[in-house]
Design a protein around this nucleic acid. Structure first.
Lengths: 215, 215
DNA sequence: GTCTATAAGAGGATAGAC
DNA sequence: GTCTATCCTCTTATAGAC
């Protein structure tokens, strides 16, 4: 396994093996707890218990509860926006949007906590990521809106406001993660079954894609 | 102003004039605070300050913070589901859905707190209204799904799963209330301007209605 | 690095005067 | 009905031993 020594020459503090492992364990546990309880509802104790550590030990790795929260958010943001950033102006519009919507639904199924984490943050006024939303996300959405607008100009999509199309896609796909409790309550055991998300994908794709196909 | 005496003969405790006024003031303030902060994040103190009362005085009218929360939720539920319950099987399907979607968007614009209150509750596992969701809401959705299924059978709508159509409508319309902070951050000052919700309505209606029109 | 013990503070709820 | 004062619990964060 070669040398496990970390080179101390780098800029920030180099993390030892155990530090990396523990930090990751904490962030994983924190994602789940913050997602289901929100920032205020979450307790350091619950995060600690979930990753088998003591409360003070968590605060050895992170200087405060808010610090943990912030880093979980930042870590998840990148992953969450990946498929959006990957929208390709040169691909076929309908196929590209099908790919994007499908990817978002898969994420809602596989990692609902990530979606819930953001929903909580934004619902409460986005105190931590407000700056990010106004700069990076705004710029990214502006860029992709331009792509969609071009598709419409080229007659490849029905005339539609790009921003509202993006919001519609976000809303529908994330709904399946954020409101899963309601969906489960309303349709019962079907929601847990294997084919459920495929069925959801088919319906959502049918509605949105037919709604924007050029006529 | 005639007599203001309350008749003590009724079943539950009759509320005096001042009691009614204060209860309503508390519930109005509580809606705003719970909507923006969630149950855990909200404090009795903030609710009290917002309606110009003292903390103990609130607890004279309601026996606990949870009691206030529960009553705000129940009070708002009825209003929130009104337009859904009003979907008319005998009306023209596309027009009826247009009416419903428009009504939901108007509610998101005029009373975003109501939407946020539910979003918070459901996001955190619906501890208080879970029973309601599994019984009344489930029954209501089942009924309306039947209406939509019939419309599809009659060839008045394109073939679509009724449940996913309902979820799509809920998701898109409530998104404008629940995620308003993100929308504002992304598109800037336009979001506050007068015509914005009309523009949103046009886009959402265009996507969903074109997506389900019979072909 | 990890623990026990504890300080410090926030917030829900009650007692009791007025 | 409304207030001030207070109790008590929960939770964040730190001190300091190991």
């Amino acid at each position: 396994m070669a040398s496990t020594k970390t080179r101390p020459a780098k800029q920030a503090k180099p993390l030892s093996r155990i530090q990396e492992v523990n930090r990751k364990a904490i962030l994983d546990a924190a994602l789940e707890v913050f997602a289901t309880s929100g920032f205020r509802g979450a307790t350091i104790d619950e995060i600690a218990t979930r990753c088998g550590m003591s409360k003070p030990n968590l605060l050895y790795y992170f200087k405060s509860k808010r610090d943990i929260y912030q880093q979980v958010l930042e870590q998840t943001l990148e992953e969450w926006l990946g498929p959006f950033a990957a929208i390709d102006p040169n691909a076929d519009p309908v196929e590209e949007l099908r790919r994007y919507i499908t990817a978002k639904l898969v994420m809602s199924e596989k990692r609902p906590e990530a979606s819930k984490l953001f929903a909580n943050e934004i619902l409460h006024g986005a105190p931590v990521i407000h700056g990010f939303l106004e700069t990076h996300l705004r710029q990214l959405v502006h860029e992709k809106a331009g792509v969609i607008r071009q598709w419409v100009s080229d007659g490849k999509l029905a005339p539609i406001d790009p921003y509202h199309l993006i919001f519609t896609i976000w809303a529908t796909t994330q709904h399946y993660a954020d409101f899963d409790v309601q969906i489960r309550a309303v349709i019962g055991s079907q929601a847990g079954k294997p084919g459920f998300y495929e069925q959801a994908a088919q319906a959502v794709l049918s509605i949105i894609l037919n709604g924007i196909r050029p006529r």
